[in-house]
Design a binder for these strands. Sequence first.
DNA 1: AGCCATGGTTACTAAAAGGTGAACAGGATA
DNA 2: TATCCTGTTCACCTTTTAGTAACCATGGCT
Lengths: 124, 124
Amino acid sequence: MALNQFRHCGLNVTLNMLAGKWKPVILFYLFHNEKMRFTELWRVIPKVAKKVLLDQLKDMELNQLVIREEKHTFPPEVYYKLSDRGKALGPALAALEDWANLYAAAEVAEVKRLTKPVIGLEQK
Amino acid sequence: MALNQFRHCGLNVTLNMLAGKWKPVILFYLFHNEKMRFTELWRVIPKVAKKVLLDQLKDMELNQLVIREEKHTFPPEVYYKLSDRGKALGPALAALEDWANLYAAAEVAEVKRLTKPVIGLEQK
DNA sequence: AGCCATGGTTACTAAAAGGTGAACAGGATA
DNA sequence: TATCCTGTTCACCTTTTAGTAACCATGGCT
């Protein structure tokens, strides 16, 4: 889960926390939604396996980027949301995104085409 | 090398380019040094295998973050330096680092202890 | 009783990333 | 001639991550 044990500075620490195939998408949705149930998140990222999504969320919870909120009802309801720490990542993530748009436009364009079906969808 | 083919937005693109165990260190040195020979870089990051360092650099070159400059002398001299694109990452990377220092202080502290011998060293 | 739904786990497989050690040009040097 | 030096490649091996599929508990429906 958490990778590189060689971390020499803050940059490494942060990137380690963000490393994970689905974490950027998860962050994307949580930045746009405040609170999401597990299944909701899962439906919205259709290509990911349940277990993997759980792994990534668990990892992010461990790093205190997200908070898991469990209502002990039946059937169970579990909500995931950004912690303050997670929210504080906003500007930095925005900077990364801006960079991509300014300096890696080609890659992003290609990307946007590939992902329209997944992102920007109606979240219930 | 370049990982996640699932990229839904700029964030993903950027993180994909930064994902790699040694890329943060490499960036660190190139941000501080302007130009470095392969061997110099290799000596300064002692725990990495030559091949792996080469892989990471090749990857970064592909993503146009660094520029490889080869002097056809004997023995060969190869310099690596940041491209403009790479330099433009500066602010975003600084933001990630600042986040770590403000919100993940514990992790960074632990880290600083582990890495003193590697970072902040006398470059040549 | 049988089935659905939710959020998990478990055991296993596959693919990617990283690591090791040897080898290679080919001029310089001893 | 033998050895060194630089940047690279090759053929493998190990460790990490991601993916698959089945199974569980539990209460509400039908």
